[in-house]
Design a protein around this nucleic acid. Structure first.
Length: 427
RNA sequence: GGAUCCGUAGCGAAAUUGGUUAUCGCGCCUCCCUGUCACGGAGGAGACUGCCGGUUCGAGCCCGGUCGGGUCCGCCA
């Protein structure tokens, strides 16, 4: 008999069906036993009138008559006839998967990740993440970007500094990519519009709920931009489409978290960093020191400001000071102390960073000198600019941060299957 | 890296000011139950309170050390 997926059970009404899945819960009422069976498409109740030796967690294959029954969740149930345990647990599960909420400490959740992922509410995060990745890919393609994959093992750190991982590479020392930055810029000179979904490695020893040492970046780079607003406008469109797709396709999973997908404005409000700092000080009484980026408390207030003033969960913060931005960032011609770099905040958390880049060779070399960055190992990148790269720019987005903010997760690690942090290298 | 907090059955928590046998819920085991859906009921097992040392008549609780972890800051997506 061919397997019937649980989501298709209605098609088999009145017939005998074969269901394969895992025993999610057992409710034993004596001479009436309910088994809740979970496969990758959903759960269904099977009724047996004899007690079996089956245990929660076992993988089973069962045959029975599919009946419509209002008393069962979902309206259908299976009158069980044959039950075969195809793989049995040899140890009791360490926590109760059958409860509505798993209610585990983060450490327990992550230490037991393969098991915890069997819980529908945990799975919902990754179903939504799947939609998110798909939506990014499709909206980028719609806008003529082509997908590229750039190397993650590099000879030179992308952006200098000490926050990269060193790896042994045969006789040489290599580093793991901190971002696809240099390669995506090079590719602007080839395809003009490119995007990448790829791993990013950061060796910073951070201990926060929004950082990990490996994450998936949603990058993009585009050529022939008029100025940085071409980039923010494109990102605005991309985010809007992504959220629309998540809302359309993710209802089943969103409701697990009681979440309403926020409306992305047609035009996400913009504000210069310097003005934002002033507003946070004047309106919210919180002072951020000069010459620094906004701190987490400031970001939270910026989110509040965007909501209060524009009714928006999103806010572009522009014109970051040159001192805090990487060497390839285009300075503002009206004020070289500031750059044409921006951040995108979602509910008070930075989810993307981007900007216009320097496209002229001489300016790039000069800026590197100014920032005291040696060109050693970066020749392949710099040389590209000798051959007329158009004005361009792009962004890098933290995919897991979007999910964290969307579902109001306490920790970004909940949105990563197998997160890597300072303390955690397994599972 | 700095600051701060926390380690109590498999899981999640409680334990008054230092006081006698460490409590509760879930799970587990045995029994009862033909419409449960976080099933219900009765009974039972399961903990050297992370580890080492100290103070005290007495330590889960106070002190020192050690190991493990969380959160915030810095940094960033």
């Amino acid at each position: 008999m061919e397997r019937t997926l649980i989501k298709n059970i209605a098609e088999k009404e009145g017939e005998k069906a074969l269901i394969q899945g895992r025993v999610f819960n057992i409710r034993n009422l004596g001479n009436l036993v309910f088994l809740i069976i979970q496969d990758y498409t959903g759960t269904i109740q099977a009724v047996f009138d004899k007690e079996t030796s089956v245990k929660i967690g076992d993988s089973v294959s069962l045959k029975g008559l599919v009946k419509k029954d209002e008393r069962a969740k979902g309206g259908y149930e299976i009158k069980g006839e044959e039950l075969e345990i195809v793989s049995n647990i040899i140890e009791d599960l360490p926590f109760d998967l059958a409860k509505n909420d798993l209610n585990l400490n983060l450490v327990t959740l992550l230490d037991n990740r393969p098991l915890a992922l069997r819980h529908p509410k945990v799975q919902a995060i990754f179903k939504l993440y799947d939609i998110l990745l798909k939506s990014y890919e499709s909206v980028m393609r719609e806008n003529d970007f082509i997908e590229i994959k750039t190397p993650k093992i590099l000879g030179t750190a992308t952006e200098g500094g000490a926050n990269f991982f060193k790896v042994k590479y045969f006789e040489k020392e290599a580093t793991l990519a901190q971002s696809p930055q240099l390669y995506k810029q090079i590719m602007v000179g080839v395809f003009e519009r490119v995007f990448e979904i790829g791993s990013v490695f950061r060796a910073e020893p951070h201990f926060t709920t929004r950082h990990v040492n490996e994450y998936i970046g949603l990058d993009a780079e585009m050529g022939f931009v008029k100025d940085y607003t071409d980039i923010t406008k494109t990102l605005n469109t991309v985010i809007k489409k992504m959220f629309e797709m998540i809302e359309k396709e993710g209802q089943e999973y969103l409701k697990e978290y009681d979440v309403i997908v926020p409306k992305v404005p047609e035009k996400i409000p913009y504000i210069k960093l310097s003005e934002l700092k002033q507003i946070i000080k004047d309106d919210y009484g919180y002072e951020i020191p000069e010459n620094t980026d906004i701190d987490p408390k400031g970001e939270e207030l910026a989110g509040k400001y965007a909501k209060d003033t524009f009714g928006s969960d999103f806010l572009f913060v522009t014109h970051y000071p040159a001192s805090g931005r990487p060497f390839y960032t285009m300075p503002d011609s009206e004020n070289p102390e500031e750059t044409l770099g921006f951040d995108l905040l979602f509910k008070g958390l930075e989810i993307a960073t981007g900007g216009q880049r320097i496209h002229k060779y001489d300016e790039l070399v000069a800026n590197m000198k100014k920032k005291k960055i040696k060109p050693d190992g970066l020749e392949f990148y710099l040389d590209t600019f000798k051959y007329a790269i158009p004005p361009h720019g792009g962004w890098g987005m933290g995919s897991e941060r979007i999910i964290k903010q969307l579902l109001n997760l306490e920790n970004i690690k909940e949105a990563i299957l197998f997160p890597r942090d300072v303390k955690r290298l397994t599972p």
